[in-house]
Amino acid sequence: MKARILVTEDDGDIREGVRILLESEGYEVLEAESGEQCLSLIDEALDLVILDVMMPGMNGIRTCEEIRKSSNVPVLFLTAKDQESDKLLGLMVGGDDYLSKPFSYSELLGRVKAQIRRFHVYKGKDAENVAAEDACIERAGVRLRKDCNRVWVDGGEVMLSDIEYRILMLLISHPEMVFSAKHIYESVWEEPFFHSSASTVMVHIRKLRLKIEKNPQEPVLIKTIWGKGYRFG
């Protein structure tokens, strides 16, 4: 079955170029020219949303916020802005990755393949599939399904993005072990670590805490070990 990608971009030339590239790689491509149209096309069959940040009307940031209310489909931002604050804002609202314009098609294709591969490995299963004991890790009230993106905290299921899930699985699988930002980034994103990557990790840790900690300001599940990194418990 072909992976389905929704390309949301108000520039028709860029949208067409991305569509032609992805279709040549065997992907099924849907197109939207606005945030509102993008939201109308979101469904469980999507494997990736490519989302332009700067669009008239509902911009990409706002669109991503709405997507995250009902879906954990990966979101890859396309942005003409290269300031660190703009990239971090995209990650904070639920984006999984970003690519600054102008970009090469080879770089875009590499990021698309990485996001879809991760999503296919870790995306959630239907609710009727009951987690077997040996398929789960449970510590400190957090229960994580190892074969798909499903997590429960104190018995209630929480929705995590693919990146958040991968970070949590890394940490909870090795309690008391301290992971540096470099180790987390290279393990989860599977890309070389750069100085700015530490901020990317920090943003996702913050979002993860908001979802699983009773008091994110005083975390007890994911702790910061100053000068060293992060650990679970």
Score class of each variant (00 low, 15 high):
22 L>W: 02
173 S>P: 11
77 F>C: 04
227 G>Q: 13
3 A>Q: 09
70 S>I: 10
102 P>L: 13
27 Y>L: 09
108 L>P: 12
108 L>Y: 13
21 L>P: 10
48 L>D: 01
23 E>V: 06
149 N>M: 06
118 R>E: 00
59 N>M: 06
124 G>L: 07
4 R>N: 14
129 N>M: 15
156 G>P: 01
53 V>C: 03
167 I>P: 01
21 L>M: 15
134 D>C: 11
174 H>Y: 12
16 E>W: 12
200 T>V: 12
141 G>I: 06
29 V>N: 13
16 E>L: 14
25 E>H: 14
100 S>T: 07
52 D>Y: 01
153 V>W: 01
227 G>K: 11
37 Q>F: 09
187 S>W: 10
111 R>E: 05
213 E>S: 07
67 I>Q: 04
53 V>N: 01
140 A>M: 14
179 F>L: 09
51 L>H: 08
165 Y>W: 07
42 I>T: 08
135 A>W: 05
127 A>K: 14
126 D>G: 09
227 G>M: 11
103 F>D: 10
44 E>M: 12
50 I>M: 13
174 H>R: 14
118 R>T: 00
232 F>D: 05
164 E>F: 02
116 I>W: 03
44 E>N: 14
169 M>W: 00
92 M>N: 10
212 I>R: 01
128 E>Y: 11
11 D>N: 15
182 K>H: 08
146 K>T: 11
61 I>T: 06
172 I>L: 11
19 R>K: 15
155 G>C: 11
152 W>Q: 06
73 V>I: 14
215 N>D: 15
9 E>W: 07
13 D>N: 15
71 S>V: 00
98 Y>P: 02
136 C>F: 07
14 I>S: 12
43 D>L: 11
137 I>F: 13
38 C>D: 05
227 G>F: 08
34 S>F: 06
45 A>G: 09
212 I>F: 05
58 M>F: 09
150 R>N: 09
173 S>E: 14
55 M>G: 11
49 V>N: 07
84 E>T: 04
215 N>F: 12
26 G>I: 14
7 V>W: 01
132 A>W: 05
139 R>C: 04
87 K>H: 08
142 V>N: 03
158 V>D: 06
56 P>Y: 09
163 I>H: 01
15 R>L: 11
218 E>R: 11
118 R>G: 00
151 V>M: 05
86 D>M: 06
132 A>I: 02
103 F>V: 09
221 L>P: 05
3 A>I: 00
150 R>I: 01
195 H>Q: 13
17 G>H: 08
70 S>R: 13
202 M>T: 04
182 K>P: 02
154 D>I: 03
45 A>F: 03
5 I>P: 03
179 F>E: 04
13 D>W: 12
46 L>G: 07
205 I>S: 02
180 S>I: 10
148 C>W: 02
214 K>Q: 12
124 G>V: 02
180 S>F: 04
145 R>S: 03
